[in-house]
Nucleic acid binder design. Structure first.
Length: 588
DNA sequence: GCCGTTTTCGGCCCGACTGTTTTCAGTCG
């Protein structure tokens, strides 16, 4: 269960984009429970989303007086951001929490409970928490309410159980893909299914996924649904209609299956892929040309229909080039498409090298040779072995003697494997708590590639940890920064860094910022990677492989890069070996 | 609360599904 943020939470804390977004999200939830006009609620929700996905620090935008340039931020909301940033508090929000218990927001995470029901549970039954709700449902008190009955109460109890089972709102993208790939493969083999695809946030490669969305093309939806229900992963039906089946898997994950006729597959896939905000933008566009767009197709004002077999057709009718799913977040992709300036996104095939990997010389689980052979088999042109430096004891970091021995070992392996794959000796060197490097300049200068990393003292105050990382970036021997913020998806917040300063300095010194492809890290994030690129930074997509099997994690880093609008030219491990080698040598 | 090649006021995407209802509200995506 998520920790509730209550009035006063912000006092004394640095207020960043995420916190501002969180406050507006909570305001939206509370206003909705209060019964405010829905468009006012949506305005706060939109502002929350844009602030959350803003590449720049909200504080910098505020200092420059540019708040109202943010889409969805007008006079009222910019005033509230101003108050938050000046005082760390927001009177409007605090007053709201005295009118509506903020713990009611937790109820909105229960399936089949929305703002209306949450308000009634509170006003009519005195329920303010999930525990209250469960007790009331078990005591049969929910069904006493007008408009509620036995079945509603049962559904809510089931939703409460599912919520407990999941523990968290969302699962990591690799876990989601594993489950979804199996399901969609089975779905595709069912009788009568012509096409089957993953849709939703997973198709957009979001870093976490709340539920699975699958879509099938078939002229016999009912039979397909019946067959799907017999798959072993499925635990129970949550809902079922003519085009949509909603189920829960044994692991608690909700899964939607849409089945549409092949002739409607384009609009159906587009609809099911989302995001909701992107879909709203497309429907507005359609409306302006006198069309109404839904999952079933376009409808003209005279009631006649236009159906689309594929997505390209949907976008074409709207006067747009096809927009890759990873861009569909209403972060400017519709405008870019209208002006025909969509990026030519990087693909996994563009990646020809891996520049961050570990062997059993430090905390990797395989030998140098196993790693090199695996990279070769994976089709890479080059691999950098970048084991840990001496001070990282838990990872068996290399002291200088062992580092030099490793050089010998790498040379021998290069001899053994031939020129088909080139092996670089790099290091993942610790940035010590005071900003010094874990090796002397002399030692660093012997290496082909120096990656600098923060692993310790990640909770230092902003000015200290920022200065520490900037010092590393300015070190002439440092070529790359690995997982710059140190965040772990869903479990550890990013370090409190001035990212704008990091990006500007990295761009100035042409130090590469790595997108760590490990699904637990995905660091840089999509938002950060996009901003870094805008500011002229070079990027890399690296797996940080500790085992040959980790090389396949590349795909998740590519997902982040694509969501960040990244083209292959900005990513140095898309460069052929000779170019990378020359570039590194030129840096000295 | 935001926003403007129909508008500075009056709109603001569109439909599926459920449960409890006699015609629809609430939730979800």
């Amino acid at each position: 269960m998520r920790e509730g943020i209550h009035a006063g939470f912000l006092g004394g804390m640095d207020v960043n984009n995420r916190e501002v977004a969180e406050v507006f999200q909570r305001i939206a939830d509370l206003l909705e429970i209060k019964g405010e006009e829905i468009y006012r609620v949506l305005a706060y929700r939109r502002a929350s989303d844009t602030v959350r996905s803003l590449g720049e620090s909200i504080e910098a935008v505020w200092r420059d007086g540019r708040l109202e340039e943010i889409p969805g931020v007008g006079k009222a909301i910019s005033g509230k951001i101003d108050e938050l940033l000046r005082t760390g508090r927001l009177e409007f929000y605090e007053k709201l929490t005295t009118e509506i218990p903020p713990s009611l927001i937790d109820l909105l995470h229960v399936g089949d409970v929305g703002p209306k029901k949450a308000a009634r549970f509170w006003k009519e039954l005195g329920i303010t928490s999930l525990d209250d709700l469960e007790a009331a449902a078990k005591a049969g008190r929910l069904k006493s309410l007008r408009g509620m009955g036995e079945r509603s109460e049962k559904r809510i109890l089931e939703s409460l159980e599912a919520l407990k089972l999941r523990q968290t709102d969302r699962i990591l993208i690799n876990q989601a893909w594993e489950i979804a790939a199996d399901l969609v493969a089975s779905l595709g083999k069912l009788p009568g299914v012509e096409k089957a695809e993953v849709a939703g946030s997973l198709r957009r490669w979001r870093e976490t996924v709340g539920d699975l969305d699958l879509i099938a093309a078939s002229s016999d939806a009912s039979s397909v649904m019946n067959a799907f229900l017999s798959l072993p992963q499925i635990s129970r039906i949550v809902g079922r209609g003519e085009t949509k089946l909603s189920v829960e898997l044994h692991n608690g994950l909700r899964t939607q299956l849409w089945v549409h006729p092949p002739s409607h597959f384009g609009t159906a896939l587009q609809y099911a892929t989302g995001s909701q905000a992107h879909n709203v933008r497309l429907r507005e566009l359609a409306k302006r040309s006198g069309l109404s767009l839904s999952e079933h197709g376009f409808m003209r004002q005279d009631g006649s229909e236009i159906t689309c077999e594929d997505e390209e057709e949907v976008y074409r009718i709207l006067g747009l080039p096809w927009i890759p799913a990873e861009l569909r977040e209403d972060r400017g992709e519709v405008e870019a498409a209208l002006e025909d300036r969509l990026p030519k996104l990087i693909t996994q095939n563009d990646l020809v090298g891996e520049l961050h990997s570990h062997s059993d010389w430090s905390d990797g689980s395989c030998t140098l040779e196993e790693m090199v052979r695996a990279a070769q088999a994976f089709g890479l042109q080059y691999l950098a072995i970048t084991d840990h430096s001496q001070s990282l004891g838990v990872a068996r970091g290399l002291d200088v003697d062992r580092l030099r021995q490793q050089r010998e070992a790498i040379n021998e392996i290069q001899q053994a494997v031939g020129d088909d794959i080139r092996v670089l000796q790099g290091i993942e060197v610790e940035i010590l708590a005071d900003g010094r490097m874990d090796y002397s300049d002399e030692v660093l200068s012997e290496l082909d590639l120096v990656i600098a990393s923060l692993h310790t003292s990640l909770r230092q105050p902003r000015h200290i940890i920022t200065a520490r990382l900037l010092k590393a970036i300015r070190n002439p021997h440092v070529d790359m920064i690995a997982h710059p913020t140190g965040r772990l998806v869903g479990s550890r917040d990013p370090a409190d860094l001035d990212m704008e300063a990091i990006f500007e300095t990295a761009a100035e010194h042409q130090v590469v910022l790595s997108i760590n492809a490990s699904p637990e890290r995905l660091d840089l994030s999509d938002v950060h990677a996009r901003r870094a690129m805008e500011l002229g930074c070079l990027l890399a997509v690296n797996t940080d492989a500790h085992h040959p099997e980790h090389l396949v994690l590349q795909q998740y880093g590519v997902g982040v890069a694509r969501r960040a609008w990244v083209e292959s030219g900005s990513v140095i491990n898309c460069w052929p070996y000779d170019r990378v080698h020359q570039w590194l040598r030129a840096r000295g």
